[in-house]
Design a protein around this nucleic acid. Structure first.
Lengths: 256, 256
DNA sequence: CGCCGTGTTGACTATTCTCAACCCAGGTGG
DNA sequence: CCACCTGGGTTGAGAATAGTCAACACGGCG
């Protein structure tokens, strides 16, 4: 299974050949985007759902005072904007961080597909719920953790998410963010973010200088940042639709 | 239409008699809960979705260090825990703030209903998307606004949400929170929250002393807090499933 | 070569937190 | 009926955290 979308949705439901086929055709015509470019902007009419097949993208919003808040990162397999169904116009921006391959699917195609396949509808729904869980964890992050913990927490999250889709090489992965973007994600000033990075480096927890991020001590970084991967629901913790409840796998265990 | 759930979902889709009937039966056996009590706790096996028919409830999480983050408030019409489909066990707590009337619906009933009625499935999906939008706005709140703005923003949000379900009387509504709970919502200490309330009172923007909250100057409070109600999608801004796009109503206008 | 965006550092300021004291209202037990 | 207790709410003082402003380093690129 090389298709990132299939891979992701298969975490939640077992898809029939038929359904897999239907999803394959959705992603059959990806478009390539340059890095650091906007895909859709606030105020644009909503026109489709974006499926990330390769590269990183992100969602952000600019406040009345010009301050920016980055609200999520998208990596291969992520569904980029399901909110099309609610909004007439975008209330936020979506841009790429790296060169990216993205398939666009029309509203009508989604509605048609989900009407015919309740399983797929439920898989999309699940995917939305996980996005929501991530958003809530980020809320916990900015609300209840200090600067160093926030940075560490985000790094652990991306490590686990990327590992689940095979993009972690040993202890390292591509982390294509500027410090400015990181600061806008975590609700920090760039200066303070820079100092927090310095702390993590000095403690020997990470190595990072614009490019690959190496997490030298994942366990230590995770516990120092109060990171627990369970909210990502990536480790076979999915509730079966029918049948007995299975014991969740190691809910409070270390991330490795 | 007196059923709060029907009222809410009707914001998103036009429901047939048949579908309305199906939803009515879901909420036919509400249970009454005392105020300030926990409905479900972290670690409990997930067993059903909760539909709030009357009263306030809230979702919160307690971090490893004992600090609490309140992640959402539920008012009549809200669907309390859709995450049942993802988790085997709760990763957060849900409790009541006031005496509340809540209907519990089993996982199987939801699956059956959504399999038979794609319209209802989509309405539930919409509802989770709005919850997500609210979570993201709260992220913006804790990440990019100062203490006074955070307080004002939450008050504006609850004003608009409660007005949409007819629970605002003039400029006042019940706001059954302690300062401790407010602080845990906004990522502030109780002391600093208290001082921020004092600022809002002194500026003549609100009146509140444990009970009804009166927003004396909604426009001023909203603009000072950078509040824009569009993320709540309550004002006829819903995108039609088919047909031409309608102009969104006054996206950046004042909240009144 | 010079410009520009990013990263780094220092010095100072502002915001927010912590600790501690005290007030007040409601409830309980004598 | 009153003394006491308890859980909010309020205030002050000092400490910790984070932000702002400003300078400079460095590399890519026209």
């Amino acid at each position: 299974m090389t298709n990132p979308l299939l891979r992701k949705l298969s975490n939640f439901v077992r898809l029939s050949e038929d359904q897999q086929q239907a999803l394959e055709t959705l992603t059959s015509r990806p478009k390539s985007y340059a890095g650091q470019s906007d895909i859709v902007c606030e105020g644009d009419p909503t026109s489709g759902v974006y499926l990330i097949l390769d590269g990183w993208a992100y969602r952000y919003k600019v406040g009345d005072d010009g301050r920016r808040q980055i609200m999520s990162y998208f990596v291969p397999g992520d569904i980029c904007d399901q909110r099309i169904f609610v909004l007439n116009r975008m209330d936020h921006n979506i841009g790429t961080l790296t060169q990216a391959s993205i398939a666009k699917v029309s509203k009508e195609a989604i509605i048609d597909l989900t009407d015919r396949h309740p399983q797929i509808a439920r898989a999309f729904w699940w995917s939305t719920l996980i996005d929501e869980a991530v958003a809530r964890e980020w809320l916990m992050n900015t609300g209840r953790r200090n600067a160093v913990q926030r940075v560490g927490h985000l790094m652990c999250e991306m490590f686990v998410r990327l590992r689940a889709i095979g993009l972690v090489d040993g202890q390292s992965f591509q982390f294509p963010l500027t410090q400015i973007q990181l600061a806008d994600t975590l609700g920090l000033s760039t200066v303070h973010l820079n100092r927090s990075l310095k702390v993590l480096r000095r403690r020997g927890l990470i190595e990072w200088a614009r490019g690959p991020l190496t997490i030298l001590e994942l366990d230590k970084l995770a516990s120092a940042s109060m990171f627990n991967s369970s909210y990502l629901h990536l480790e076979g913790e999915v509730a079966p639709v029918s049948g007995g409840l299975t014991e969740p796998a190691a809910r409070n265990a270390a991330v490795t």
